[in-house]
Write a protein that binds this DNA or RNA. Structure first.
Lengths: 198, 198
DNA sequence: CTTGTACTGGACCGACCGGTCCGATATAGT
DNA sequence: ACTATATCGGACCGGTCGGTCCAGTACAAG
């Protein structure tokens, strides 16, 4: 009868996710990971296979979590426009994997660092981006139907524009651009999309 | 009388810049750098001081170059709007440090990888972003004056929106998003800013 | 008790990391 | 020729990298 595992896989993976999110992949050493996860190397490799595979698992986990939270946010009988505005504004705050740390968005971080050089990572990134875009497009279509969003662009175009907006904001935030400028960018973009500022 | 230096500093720095641009800072080893620059370690350290200092020098060089090219692009008697549209569209193509490689934008890459953890790098990033934003704001003001851009937003707001647009595009491109979607994002955004699509 | 099994700890591995050191070298002046 | 000087080459450094290995351990079943 085998010895029982002493740690919880999902919890350990969350810790790994946070470590990668904070420092990036290359700059996070195995020592960093072991410290974050509270595991020995043997337990880590036994369970996750390799550093890269741990990252892939973390990406998947992050994606599932983000998409679920997004769906929950829009799961309301309220008109879509204010929900959308709140969601975009919230995205500026969500790049904090730790208090007072600017971690950005794990997908964005990994897209920049690894996607051009690793096909499987790129697929994971694409998978997330495409699913989010599809959900946003449906949501915008809903906004057209409920009349809260003026039909100015194809839903897919607006969705991609939102993706781009969020990605850009994460970069500028990590680069140290002031919060009031980020908020102003959001105002301008919401004006374009929804036809009013607040 | 001292021995003469056998390499050109600017040229070596360009090669270093390309190496960092392609692989990122942490993932570019000293061996990679020496191969790219064609130098021995002694020559490198004698001249540049450290890996990090070489990156700072490369960032500065990239920034000067990008800002100069941008100024040149807008140094025209033509109305601003079409110049702006062409400049934004060109930005999608300029993320290729090498043929067939998606390198994105060095400033964006470094903002994501290093800025939150290194104050001096963050300053360099901020310096570039702020200078570019200031130039774009002046340019947009010029567009208001020549009548080619409708006065919908404060020039600084529009400039920041453009910064955000470019940053987001670089991320999505590195993440593998198709070119036609990127082009459509540009169309939508130019419509918002200039009041027409092409 | 023994057995079989998965898990754990920690020593170990070859390779690599950024950087140091110093003799050899190129160069012009005397 | 010698001298002074900055540059170059490459051996070397201590530490770190991701990953391997195997004895020890925990556990339930027989």
């Amino acid at each position: 009868m085998p010895r029982n595992r002493e740690f919880d896989i999902e919890q350990a993976l969350d810790q790994a996710l946070n470590a990668f999110w904070l420092k990036g992949y290359a700059a996070t050493s195995m020592t960093d990971l072991m410290a974050a996860m509270g595991l020995s190397k043997s337990s880590f490799y036994q369970c996750f296979g390799s550093k890269r595979e741990a990252l892939l698992a973390a990406l998947s986990r992050y994606s599932v979590r983000e998409l679920a939270e997004t769906r929950l946010h829009f799961n309301s009988a309220e008109p879509v426009a204010p929900l959308l505005a709140a969601w975009v504004r919230h995205s500026i705050d969500s790049g904090a994997c730790r208090p007072s740390q600017r971690c950005g968005c794990l997908i964005v971080n990994v897209a920049v660092e690894l996607a051009p050089h690793d096909g499987e990572i790129e697929e994971a990134v694409r998978h997330h981006l495409d699913k989010l875009a599809a959900f946003l497009a449906d949501t915008i279509q809903r906004g057209y139907a409920d009349g809260s969003i003026p039909k100015r662009f194809e839903p897919a175009q607006s969705a991609d524009m939102l993706l781009n907006l969020i990605a850009g904001l994460q970069v500028l935030a990590k680069g140290g651009v002031e919060a009031h400028r980020l908020a102003a960018i959001v105002d301008v973009q919401l004006d374009c999309l929804l036809g009013q500022t607040h």
